[in-house]
Computed example of a mutant assay.
Amino acid sequence: MLLDPYYSKQDKSVIISAEQASQFAKKECQDFNPIHDPNSKRFCVPGDLLFALAINEYGISESMRFTFTNMVGDNMPLNFPVTDAEHIVVTNDQGKSVLEINRKGQTSHDLELIESLIKKYVVFSGQNFPTLLMPLMEKHQVMFNPARPLVMYNSMNFEFNTLSLTNPLHVELAESKLEVEAKRANEFLHFDIFDGDNNIGHGVKTVVVGGLKPYDHDAITAFADNYLAMRNAF
Protein backbone atom coordinates (compact mmCIF):
# COMPACT_ATOMS: atom_id res chain seq x y z
CA MET A 1 0.00 0.00 0.00
CA LEU A 2 1.28 3.43 -0.98
CA LEU A 3 1.03 4.93 2.52
CA ASP A 4 2.41 2.02 4.57
CA PRO A 5 5.97 3.44 4.89
CA TYR A 6 4.73 6.81 6.11
CA TYR A 7 2.87 6.05 9.34
CA SER A 8 2.42 3.44 12.04
CA LYS A 9 -0.39 2.34 14.33
CA GLN A 10 -0.16 2.37 18.13
CA ASP A 11 -3.27 0.99 19.79
CA LYS A 12 -5.98 2.96 17.94
CA SER A 13 -3.79 5.97 17.16
CA VAL A 14 -1.97 6.92 13.97
CA ILE A 15 1.66 7.92 14.56
CA ILE A 16 3.81 9.81 12.04
CA SER A 17 7.48 10.31 12.79
CA ALA A 18 9.33 13.37 11.54
CA GLU A 19 11.42 11.15 9.28
CA GLN A 20 8.34 9.46 7.78
CA ALA A 21 6.69 12.84 7.18
CA SER A 22 9.81 14.24 5.56
CA GLN A 23 10.21 11.22 3.30
CA PHE A 24 6.58 11.49 2.17
CA ALA A 25 7.03 15.19 1.37
CA LYS A 26 10.20 14.57 -0.62
CA LYS A 27 9.42 11.25 -2.32
CA GLU A 28 5.71 11.56 -3.06
CA CYS A 29 5.18 15.34 -3.29
CA GLN A 30 8.62 16.56 -4.40
CA ASP A 31 8.10 19.11 -1.61
CA PHE A 32 11.25 20.42 0.09
CA ASN A 33 9.61 23.04 2.31
CA PRO A 34 12.06 23.43 5.27
CA ILE A 35 9.16 23.13 7.72
CA HIS A 36 8.98 19.40 6.89
CA ASP A 37 12.64 18.74 7.69
CA PRO A 38 13.02 16.51 10.78
CA ASN A 39 15.50 18.92 12.39
CA SER A 40 13.38 22.04 11.84
CA LYS A 41 12.40 23.88 15.03
CA ARG A 42 9.00 24.49 13.43
CA PHE A 43 8.60 20.97 12.03
CA CYS A 44 5.12 19.86 11.07
CA VAL A 45 3.66 16.91 9.20
CA PRO A 46 2.71 17.90 5.63
CA GLY A 47 -0.98 18.51 5.07
CA ASP A 48 -0.83 16.31 1.98
CA LEU A 49 0.03 13.30 4.14
CA LEU A 50 -2.91 14.01 6.46
CA PHE A 51 -5.17 14.37 3.41
CA ALA A 52 -3.89 11.08 2.02
CA LEU A 53 -4.45 9.23 5.31
CA ALA A 54 -7.95 10.72 5.53
CA ILE A 55 -9.16 9.53 2.14
CA ASN A 56 -7.46 6.19 2.73
CA GLU A 57 -9.56 5.90 5.91
CA TYR A 58 -12.86 7.45 4.78
CA GLY A 59 -12.85 7.01 0.99
CA ILE A 60 -13.52 9.67 -1.62
CA SER A 61 -16.87 11.43 -1.57
CA GLU A 62 -18.29 13.43 -4.45
CA SER A 63 -17.78 16.65 -2.49
CA MET A 64 -15.07 17.02 0.18
CA ARG A 65 -13.40 19.84 2.09
CA PHE A 66 -10.28 19.47 4.25
CA THR A 67 -9.37 22.22 6.72
CA PHE A 68 -6.04 22.02 8.55
CA THR A 69 -6.68 23.43 12.02
CA ASN A 70 -3.47 22.76 13.99
CA MET A 71 0.09 21.69 13.26
CA VAL A 72 1.00 18.02 13.77
CA GLY A 73 4.39 17.38 15.35
CA ASP A 74 6.81 14.44 15.47
CA ASN A 75 5.23 11.20 16.75
CA MET A 76 2.05 12.98 17.79
CA PRO A 77 -0.75 10.39 18.25
CA LEU A 78 -3.74 11.11 16.00
CA ASN A 79 -7.29 9.85 16.25
CA PHE A 80 -9.15 9.20 13.00
CA PRO A 81 -12.63 8.39 14.37
CA VAL A 82 -14.65 5.51 12.98
CA THR A 83 -17.71 7.29 11.61
CA ASP A 84 -20.09 7.68 8.68
CA ALA A 85 -20.79 11.31 9.54
CA GLU A 86 -20.60 14.14 7.00
CA HIS A 87 -18.45 16.20 9.40
CA ILE A 88 -15.32 14.47 10.73
CA VAL A 89 -12.78 15.86 13.20
CA VAL A 90 -9.32 14.28 13.39
CA THR A 91 -7.75 15.06 16.77
CA ASN A 92 -4.37 14.83 18.49
CA ASP A 93 -3.70 13.11 21.82
CA GLN A 94 -4.86 16.24 23.67
CA GLY A 95 -8.22 16.14 21.91
CA LYS A 96 -7.49 19.21 19.77
CA SER A 97 -8.66 19.29 16.18
CA VAL A 98 -5.87 19.00 13.60
CA LEU A 99 -7.97 18.27 10.50
CA GLU A 100 -11.67 18.78 9.83
CA ILE A 101 -13.40 17.09 6.93
CA ASN A 102 -16.77 17.90 5.44
CA ARG A 103 -18.18 15.54 2.84
CA LYS A 104 -21.36 15.04 0.82
CA GLY A 105 -22.68 12.73 -1.85
CA GLN A 106 -21.77 9.19 -2.72
CA THR A 107 -18.52 7.70 -1.42
CA SER A 108 -16.10 5.33 -3.12
CA HIS A 109 -13.62 3.11 -1.28
CA ASP A 110 -12.06 1.86 -4.51
CA LEU A 111 -8.35 1.47 -3.75
CA GLU A 112 -7.28 2.25 -7.32
CA LEU A 113 -9.18 5.54 -7.28
CA ILE A 114 -7.86 6.48 -3.81
CA GLU A 115 -4.22 5.75 -4.63
CA SER A 116 -4.48 7.44 -8.02
CA LEU A 117 -5.89 10.63 -6.48
CA ILE A 118 -3.24 10.63 -3.74
CA LYS A 119 -0.37 10.18 -6.22
CA LYS A 120 -1.55 12.75 -8.74
CA TYR A 121 -2.85 15.36 -6.31
CA VAL A 122 0.17 15.46 -3.99
CA VAL A 123 2.56 15.90 -6.94
CA PHE A 124 0.39 18.80 -8.16
CA SER A 125 0.29 20.21 -4.63
CA GLY A 126 4.04 19.85 -4.16
CA GLN A 127 4.88 21.96 -7.21
CA ASN A 128 3.59 25.10 -5.50
CA PHE A 129 7.12 26.33 -4.83
CA PRO A 130 8.84 27.53 -6.87
CA THR A 131 6.75 26.80 -9.98
CA LEU A 132 3.45 28.41 -8.98
CA LEU A 133 4.22 30.76 -6.08
CA MET A 134 7.29 32.53 -7.51
CA PRO A 135 5.46 34.22 -10.43
CA LEU A 136 2.64 35.32 -8.10
CA MET A 137 5.06 36.90 -5.61
CA GLU A 138 6.87 38.74 -8.39
CA LYS A 139 3.56 39.98 -9.82
CA HIS A 140 2.49 41.39 -6.44
CA GLN A 141 6.04 42.50 -5.50
CA VAL A 142 6.01 40.64 -2.17
CA MET A 143 7.78 37.53 -0.86
CA PHE A 144 8.25 35.46 2.27
CA ASN A 145 11.37 35.91 4.37
CA PRO A 146 13.99 33.51 2.91
CA ALA A 147 15.59 33.21 6.36
CA ARG A 148 12.28 32.08 7.93
CA PRO A 149 10.00 30.84 5.15
CA LEU A 150 6.41 30.38 6.27
CA VAL A 151 4.22 28.75 3.63
CA MET A 152 1.41 26.80 5.27
CA TYR A 153 -1.36 24.61 3.84
CA ASN A 154 -4.73 26.03 4.99
CA SER A 155 -7.43 24.01 3.23
CA MET A 156 -8.41 22.07 0.13
CA ASN A 157 -11.72 21.12 -1.37
CA PHE A 158 -12.86 19.24 -4.46
CA GLU A 159 -15.97 18.05 -6.22
CA PHE A 160 -16.29 15.04 -8.52
CA ASN A 161 -18.90 14.63 -11.25
CA THR A 162 -18.32 10.86 -11.18
CA LEU A 163 -16.31 8.46 -9.04
CA SER A 164 -15.91 5.89 -11.82
CA LEU A 165 -12.60 5.90 -13.72
CA THR A 166 -12.00 4.44 -17.18
CA ASN A 167 -8.57 6.04 -17.77
CA PRO A 168 -5.63 7.15 -15.61
CA LEU A 169 -6.55 10.12 -13.40
CA HIS A 170 -4.52 13.33 -13.59
CA VAL A 171 -4.68 16.78 -11.99
CA GLU A 172 -3.96 20.06 -13.79
CA LEU A 173 -3.73 23.69 -12.67
CA ALA A 174 -6.72 25.77 -13.81
CA GLU A 175 -5.91 29.14 -12.19
CA SER A 176 -3.62 30.58 -9.51
CA LYS A 177 -4.19 33.76 -7.49
CA LEU A 178 -2.56 35.60 -4.60
CA GLU A 179 -4.50 37.93 -2.29
CA VAL A 180 -2.19 40.11 -0.21
CA GLU A 181 -3.24 41.31 3.25
CA ALA A 182 -0.51 43.37 4.98
CA LYS A 183 2.10 40.89 6.27
CA ARG A 184 0.43 37.77 4.90
CA ALA A 185 -1.16 36.52 1.73
CA ASN A 186 -3.62 33.83 0.72
CA GLU A 187 -2.73 31.78 -2.33
CA PHE A 188 -5.47 29.97 -4.24
CA LEU A 189 -4.58 27.11 -6.59
CA HIS A 190 -7.60 26.06 -8.62
CA PHE A 191 -7.28 22.68 -10.29
CA ASP A 192 -9.18 20.34 -12.59
CA ILE A 193 -9.34 16.56 -12.30
CA PHE A 194 -9.33 14.50 -15.49
CA ASP A 195 -10.14 10.90 -16.39
CA GLY A 196 -8.15 10.70 -19.60
CA ASP A 197 -9.41 13.72 -21.59
CA ASN A 198 -12.65 14.00 -19.63
CA ASN A 199 -12.93 16.64 -16.92
CA ILE A 200 -14.54 14.80 -14.00
CA GLY A 201 -13.95 17.27 -11.17
CA HIS A 202 -12.40 20.43 -9.85
CA GLY A 203 -11.10 21.92 -6.62
CA VAL A 204 -8.95 24.53 -4.95
CA LYS A 205 -5.98 24.41 -2.58
CA THR A 206 -5.53 27.39 -0.23
CA VAL A 207 -2.12 28.30 1.18
CA VAL A 208 -1.16 30.97 3.72
CA VAL A 209 2.11 32.80 3.05
CA GLY A 210 3.32 34.56 6.20
CA GLY A 211 6.01 37.08 7.10
CA LEU A 212 5.71 39.05 3.87
CA LYS A 213 8.34 41.59 2.92
CA PRO A 214 9.05 43.66 -0.20
CA TYR A 215 10.05 41.62 -3.22
CA ASP A 216 13.81 41.15 -3.67
CA HIS A 217 14.47 39.30 -6.92
CA ASP A 218 18.04 38.28 -6.12
CA ALA A 219 17.24 37.04 -2.60
CA ILE A 220 14.21 34.96 -3.53
CA THR A 221 15.92 33.61 -6.66
CA ALA A 222 18.88 32.46 -4.58
CA PHE A 223 16.48 30.72 -2.19
CA ALA A 224 14.66 29.05 -5.09
CA ASP A 225 17.94 27.93 -6.69
CA ASN A 226 19.02 26.32 -3.41
CA TYR A 227 15.60 24.68 -3.06
CA LEU A 228 15.82 23.20 -6.56
CA ALA A 229 19.40 22.05 -5.90
CA MET A 230 18.19 20.09 -2.86
CA ARG A 231 15.36 18.56 -4.92
CA ASN A 232 17.72 17.58 -7.73
CA ALA A 233 20.28 16.13 -5.31
CA PHE A 234 17.58 14.04 -3.64
Rank of each mutant, 00 (worst) to 15 (best):
P34D: 04
V14M: 00
N198P: 07
L173W: 06
M156I: 12
A185E: 05
S155C: 09
K26L: 02
E19F: 06
E159K: 00
F80N: 08
E57L: 05
G95K: 01
T67C: 09
E172Y: 10
N186P: 09
F80W: 09
Y227R: 00
L50V: 00
D31A: 04
D192I: 12
T131G: 12
F129V: 01
A185I: 06
A222R: 03
G105M: 10
H36Q: 02
H87V: 13
L99Q: 00
T69F: 06
I15F: 00
E100R: 10
V123P: 08
S125C: 13
F194C: 10
E187Y: 11
D93I: 05
V89K: 07
V209W: 04
D195M: 08
M134W: 11
N56F: 06
T221L: 13
V14I: 04
P34N: 03
S63T: 12
N199F: 10
D11F: 03
F68C: 04
Q127I: 12
K205R: 13
E100F: 11
M71R: 04
I55Y: 04
P38V: 00
K205S: 07
N154E: 09
L53C: 02
M134Q: 09
T206H: 12
M230C: 13
N92V: 04
A185C: 02
A185K: 03
I16Y: 01
H140I: 09
K96I: 02
L111D: 13
S63L: 10
V89E: 14
S13T: 07
Q23G: 05
I101F: 10
H202T: 15
N92I: 06
Y7M: 05
S40V: 01
R184E: 14
I101Y: 11
P38F: 00
V204G: 11
S108T: 11
L178A: 15
K9P: 02
V204Q: 15
S155N: 11
L53N: 03
K213Q: 15
